[in-house]
């Protein structure tokens, strides 16, 4: 393993991490402010990707598509919050899990109904195609670099939003004391809808950007959703900082594990068996990481008191 390869793999881990952060920040905000566990978050990821692919296909412009996808995901989020989610805030987690599980079924099958079963194709925009040369002689795809950059900007943006703005103040107040903020005369249901739509929009953005790299198909949100849950559990549910640290940790551990473990096993095993076993352990690695963290810190790395 050369240094430049390691550097490139670190970048890959970082890129996966920033994507996970976009998903996880929405989840963790919604939990922190409203106390809601939302399995249907992956559906917004899917919505963002589908609308982006569709609009890009119609208009021929990726950026218009990306904007439309993000806004559509946020709008669908607001709609779902208004129609279903707000009835769940006072329910226990079991009801929340089930209702949002039902939403997954409705969204997945509904999307299949609308768009059919074949994957849609979305290409990286021409302006971001190709690769650039970085220090250590690393050639790296420009688009992935842009994703990392966008992730960093959004992390900063979220930080500013929460620490500097009135909305952020209300979010923080909501996290600390839900009854209190209502008593202070803040229109709490609008706040909740806004927060939920914000989370959905971020998920839609993640789905749209990743859709251009991979494929846009029904069910694409589910693997990401599970990873995002691992992220927020590791980071501490309700903590944005935890989501960031958890996302980067999961991204890097998952990527490096997949690359390094087969090599490690090759030290004492026959090559083809080693790559099989290595791949197997690597796919379990982040769950092992999560279990270990929870054994020592049952409420995650940056536990939030509720």
């Amino acid at each position: 393993m050369t240094l430049s390869l390691l550097f490139e793999q670190l970048l890959n881990g970082l890129q996966l991490g920033t994507m996970l952060f976009l998903m996880a920040s929405g989840l963790t905000l919604v939990f922190g402010v409203m106390g809601l566990i939302n399995l249907a978050h992956g559906s917004f990821y899917m919505t963002g990707a589908f609308v982006t692919a569709w609009v890009t296909g119609t208009t021929g412009n990726f950026w218009v598509g990306l904007l439309a996808g993000t806004l559509a995901a946020a709008a669908v989020g607001a709609l779902v919050e208004f129609a279903v989610i707000r009835r769940l805030y006072h329910r226990d987690h079991l009801d929340q899990v089930l209702a949002t599980f039902a939403l997954i079924l409705i969204f997945s099958e509904g999307t299949r109904w609308l768009y059919g079963s074949s994957p849609l194709w979305l290409n990286v925009p021409d302006s971001l195609a190709g690769s650039v040369t970085l220090p250590f002689g690393v050639e790296y795809p420009l688009y992935r670099l842009a994703i990392i950059g966008m992730g960093i900007l959004i992390a900063i943006g979220l930080y500013l939003l929460i620490s500097r703005t009135r909305l952020g103040m209300r979010i923080r107040a909501g996290e600390n004391d839900r009854e209190m903020i209502g008593a202070l005369g803040v229109d709490i249901s609008t706040l909740y809808t806004l927060v939920f739509a914000l989370g959905a929009g971020l998920a839609g953005l993640a789905g749209a950007t990743i859709g251009a790299l991979q494929s846009v198909q029904v069910g694409m949100g589910e693997p990401v959703l599970i990873l995002a849950f691992v992220v927020i559990v590791i980071g501490g549910i309700g903590s944005i900082k935890g989501a960031l640290v958890g996302a980067l940790l999961v991204g890097v551990v998952d990527t490096l594990g997949r690359v390094l473990l087969p090599d490690v096993f090759k030290l004492f095993m026959e090559a083809s068996a080693a790559s099989g076993v290595g791949a197997a352990i690597a796919s379990m690695l982040i769950y092992i990481l999560m279990a270990i963290i929870l054994i020592f810190k049952p409420n995650g790395l940056f536990a939030v008191k509720h």
Binding site: I226, I237, L294
Partner: peptide, 24 residues
């Protein structure tokens, strides 16, 4: 040792671990 959402998530994570183990 955990409760609430953490319990839901950690049981899910263990099941996923076994799922990936079986696949590989």
């Amino acid at each position: 040792g955990t409760s609430g959402v953490y319990f839901i998530m950690i049981t899910l994570a263990f099941a996923q671990m076994i799922y990936y183990f079986a696949i590989s």
